[in-house]
Simulated scan of single mutants.
Amino acid sequence: MTSRRGFLAGLLATGVAPAATWADVGAPAYLSAAQGADGAYYLLGVGPEGGIRFRQKIPGRGHAAAAHPQRAEAVGFARRPGTFAFVLDCLSGDTVAELSSPEGRHFYGHGVFSRDGALLFTAENDYDNARGVIGVWDVRAGYVRTGEFDSQGVGPHDVRLMPDGETLVVANGGIETHPDSGRTKLNIPVMQPNLTYLRQNGSVLETVELAPALHMNSIRHLDLRADGLVGFAMQWQGGQGTLPPILGVHQRGAAPRLFGADPEVAGQMNGYGGSVSFSGDGRHLAVSSPRGARVQVFDVASGALAQVLEMEDVCGLGAAPAGFLASAGTGQVAMLEADGRHPLGTADVRWDNHLVPLHT
């Protein structure tokens, strides 16, 4: 007897059925890239309990993905600096489209769809001009690039769609790189990271910078709360010594707030924020550090440190109803709750950096 999944895949191949939805691939809560035990690379759907809902092979090591809001389709980005991305049918495993960055551009590993799924926005580097850009792709036309606009900073690493469905928030990391120099950081003494809020036509709504003393704290990754509060994780470029906090929040129209300024608390993370996530109820904010082998959890209202959880090579974080789901390069998956860390098992993969949430 043909399974429902096989039946749908056959219909999709003939063009008879509508595109598969996320429910058709097991209703995952997150997407993650990973390397399998066979050495190949995969994009996986991950359930809210940490189980693997689907697994599809991809052409190389991934970083993050953008999940289409309606259909089981994901854009996988090469690790930076990469010039290609692919659109994956998560049911069949087929490549729907291939994206190549224009000459003089490369991707930074992150992107996001518009709320209706008609447009894709990609974080990119205009490397000859040391300028960040957001690429715009027409999804309905088959992922055709239709333009770009300035990200209002250097090194836009992450980009998210705000809860209003209209505003983009960009983490301009501030670090200048050029493919001729590999991943060498070219401007550390004068870097200026920022958070920028943009309309989807590129017009600027607000730009926020850290205090001058923190200008080497690269703003890298983002998460959003339903009320528009932005959580951001940073990576310190100023060398060792007294390390600054690597986690903050920002609300439009206000100054950013940083968590974990105590030198002992900051020092645990080795200056490196890997991923950031609000808890399911929005009361807590977590940051992971694979270099520090820890997750720190803070109370959002007070800014107080609520928990420190040790976990080797931990990086991926995702919201769970009572806390957070965490994944590690060791293959471990764990639930982080108020009473501590609850191991959920070890998958036969090396999880990559991020658990990308699906909001469906």
Results as ranks from 00 to 15, higher is better:
residue 1 M to I: 12
residue 5 R to P: 02
residue 6 G to F: 11
residue 8 L to K: 12
residue 9 A to Y: 12
residue 9 A to R: 12
residue 13 A to T: 12
residue 16 V to N: 02
residue 17 A to H: 06
residue 18 P to E: 15
residue 20 A to I: 10
residue 24 D to I: 01
residue 30 Y to I: 13
residue 32 S to R: 03
residue 33 A to F: 15
residue 38 D to I: 07
residue 41 Y to V: 05
residue 51 G to L: 09
residue 55 R to I: 04
residue 58 I to L: 12
residue 63 H to W: 11
residue 67 A to S: 14
residue 68 H to F: 02
residue 69 P to R: 11
residue 74 A to N: 06
residue 77 F to Y: 15
residue 81 P to T: 12
residue 82 G to K: 07
residue 83 T to P: 01
residue 85 A to D: 06
residue 87 V to T: 06
residue 88 L to F: 08
residue 88 L to M: 14
residue 91 L to K: 04
residue 94 D to K: 14
residue 95 T to H: 01
residue 96 V to I: 14
residue 97 A to T: 01
residue 98 E to D: 14
residue 99 L to Y: 10
residue 101 S to E: 11
residue 105 R to C: 06
residue 105 R to G: 05
residue 108 Y to C: 05
residue 109 G to M: 09
residue 111 G to C: 10
residue 112 V to S: 11
residue 114 S to H: 10
residue 117 G to V: 03
residue 117 G to Y: 03
residue 124 E to Q: 04
residue 125 N to G: 08
residue 128 D to G: 05
residue 128 D to R: 09
residue 136 V to I: 13
residue 138 D to K: 05
residue 140 R to M: 10
residue 140 R to T: 12
residue 145 R to D: 00
residue 146 T to F: 10
residue 152 Q to K: 14
residue 155 G to M: 08
residue 156 P to D: 09
residue 157 H to Q: 01
residue 159 V to M: 10
residue 160 R to M: 14
residue 163 P to Y: 09
residue 168 L to R: 12
residue 169 V to I: 09
residue 170 V to F: 09
residue 179 P to Y: 10
residue 179 P to R: 03
residue 190 V to Q: 07
residue 190 V to S: 14
residue 191 M to H: 05
residue 196 T to V: 13
residue 201 N to R: 13
residue 201 N to W: 10
residue 204 V to Q: 13
residue 205 L to I: 15
residue 212 P to M: 00
residue 213 A to H: 10
residue 217 N to E: 12
residue 223 D to S: 08
residue 224 L to S: 03
residue 226 A to N: 08
residue 229 L to W: 00
residue 232 F to M: 08
residue 234 M to A: 06
residue 234 M to D: 01
residue 239 G to D: 01
residue 242 T to P: 11
residue 244 P to V: 00
residue 247 L to Q: 01
residue 247 L to P: 00
residue 248 G to V: 04
residue 249 V to F: 01
residue 249 V to E: 05
residue 250 H to P: 09
residue 250 H to D: 03
residue 251 Q to K: 14
residue 252 R to Q: 15
residue 252 R to A: 15
residue 255 A to F: 04
residue 256 P to F: 05
residue 256 P to I: 04
residue 258 L to E: 00
residue 260 G to Y: 02
residue 260 G to C: 03
residue 261 A to G: 15
residue 271 G to P: 04
residue 274 G to P: 12
residue 283 R to Y: 08
residue 291 R to E: 08
residue 293 A to V: 02
residue 295 V to R: 08
residue 301 A to T: 13
residue 304 A to K: 12
residue 306 A to G: 08
residue 309 L to E: 10
residue 312 E to F: 09
residue 313 D to N: 13
residue 323 G to H: 09
residue 325 L to R: 05
residue 326 A to N: 04
residue 330 T to M: 01
residue 332 Q to D: 13
residue 338 A to E: 15
residue 342 H to T: 12
residue 342 H to Y: 00
residue 343 P to W: 03
residue 343 P to I: 04
residue 353 N to D: 11
residue 354 H to N: 01
residue 356 V to P: 00
residue 356 V to H: 09
residue 359 H to Y: 15
residue 360 T to G: 15
